[in-house]
Design a protein around this nucleic acid. Structure first.
Length: 427
DNA sequence: AATGCGGGGTC
DNA sequence: GACCCAGCATT
């Protein structure tokens, strides 16, 4: 039977892993990985004393985790008290902190994946107003869920959230699961989200590890190297578990994240006001600027995409969905204007595309160029080239939708689509 | 272990 | 303009 820490992907004891990048080509990356080297730290605390097996075997929970040497059990307690006190005094009033409803916490955690609080806030309020309970979300059509997610990005989050809500409604009596195993079985819920919801809503002793926590822990323990490398991430996860304040796991997790976001920031941390700087090995060794190591990043690829706003005399336009493989990347399988990646002759290539998918007659088609816009999707650096085409009537085709341009916001559409529509107003 | 997925705040 | 974010699923 795996212990909770193992289910979160920890392997204990942590081995000093030399990460091998042999054979990898770095040419296409901006930041080639540095020589990987772990910082050796003593195994100094038992994490899951109660889970200790008399017969340790490779799959048992070994209970030991790496912890920076500046701590003793007593100073660890002081450290925890200080950080918790700081959090309780300085935490911001965020909508998902006003209740312990697991549903509300879960939705927030999904939205917050790779997304800043400021970006989430308006989406969260609107979403909770529309779907105040897991049952209301489970009953909703996916189209409506995606519409409320439009512009927030990572749309599979919304699709998975919706699927998970249906599962909770049908198989968990409408209650978010209380066990780690059941939570992890839900779509869109991984180590981080499971630990976050279970600790915050149910007081379960599960430490979260996200980008913020990883940075804080890496600095505390002066851990060098790429924090996202799987072996090091597991090391950090074990470390996080060893720090966890069992008296208030939810507050503790949020305290670490809040510290990382407001004090222990990526570039220039505000060590002067950090409540736990006295225990920070990176600060003691002058390594705060070296830690964390920069993330490896794919080199950007520039592409151009031409898109057509067809408009009939009544001000209606036509949107398409799932028109072809490469368009999905940019438009996330949501409603979009007919568009195609172009090379040398955007107008001509777009006209051909419109003929191909909508059977629009090329000869009578006039495409008026609109102001271009820029759009980034992961490593793609996209120039959007919108065109306006006035047409007497809009075609009727499968997987298309005709609607007033002014009603665009009522459909699921990515930001790229909204940028194209906005070009019309900037004309 | 590596990759792709959105979008925007912040420096 | 670069960096990175309250990660997850897939291969």
């Amino acid at each position: 039977m795996p212990c909770p820490a193992q289910m979160l992907g920890f392997t204990t004891p942590i081995r000093l892993a030399r990460v091998i990048f042999g054979g990898r080509t770095f040419r296409s990356y901006i930041n080639p990985p540095r020589e990987a080297h772990s910082t050796a730290l003593p195994l100094s605390q038992h994490v899951f004393a109660s889970n200790r097996r008399t017969e340790p075997h490779p799959h048992s929970c070994d209970n030991t985790a790496r912890m920076p040497p500046q701590f003793t059990p007593r100073t660890l307690k002081t450290f925890q008290r200080r950080l918790l006190a700081w959090f309780r005094a300085h935490q911001r009033d965020l909508p998902w902190r006003s209740s312990r409803d697991p549903y509300r916490i879960w939705v927030a955690e999904i939205m917050l994946q790779q997304t800043r609080i400021a970006a989430v806030l308006p989406y969260y309020r609107r979403f909770l107003k529309t779907f105040p309970t897991v049952e209301s979300l489970a009953r909703a059509p996916q189209e409506k869920v995606l519409q409320l997610w439009s512009g927030l990005g990572y749309y599979s989050r919304a699709r998975n959230l919706h699927r998970a809500a249906k599962e909770i409604a049908s198989s968990h009596a409408g209650e978010f699961p209380r066990t780690l195993e059941a939570a992890l079985a839900l779509p869109g819920i991984g180590s981080y989200t499971a630990a976050a919801v279970l600790s915050i809503a149910y007081d379960q002793p599960l430490a979260v590890l996200d980008g913020n926590v990883a940075r804080v822990l890496a600095r505390l323990g002066a851990i060098r190297g790429d924090l996202r490398a799987p072996a090091r991430w597991r090391q950090l996860a074990a470390s996080a578990q060893s720090y966890l304040a069992l008296t208030a796991p939810g507050d503790w997790n949020q305290a670490l994240m809040e510290l990382g976001e407001t004090i222990c920031t990526p570039r220039i941390p505000r060590c002067g006001v950090c409540p736990v700087s006295r225990w920070c090995l990176a600060r003691a060794r002058g390594l705060t600027r070296e830690i964390p190591a920069p993330r490896r990043k794919r080199a950007p690829v520039r592409i151009r995409i031409a898109a057509a706003i067809l408009r009939d005399p009544r001000g209606r336009t036509i949107l398409v969905r799932d028109p072809g493989a490469h368009d999905d990347v940019l438009f996330s399988r949501m409603w979009q204007f007919p568009a195609v990646e172009v090379a040398r002759h955007p107008e001509a290539e777009l006209a051909t595309h419109l003929h191909d998918i909508l059977k629009i007659d090329r000869a009578s088609l006039h495409l008026e160029p609109l102001p271009s816009a820029r759009h980034g999707v992961t490593f793609r650096n996209i120039t959007l080239l919108p065109f306006l085409a006035r047409v007497p009537r809009l075609p009727k085709r499968p997987r298309t939708r005709v609607l007033l341009l002014s009603r665009l916001a009522q459909l699921p559409a990515s930001s790229a689509t909204h940028k194209i529509a906005a070009a019309l107003a900037r004309r």
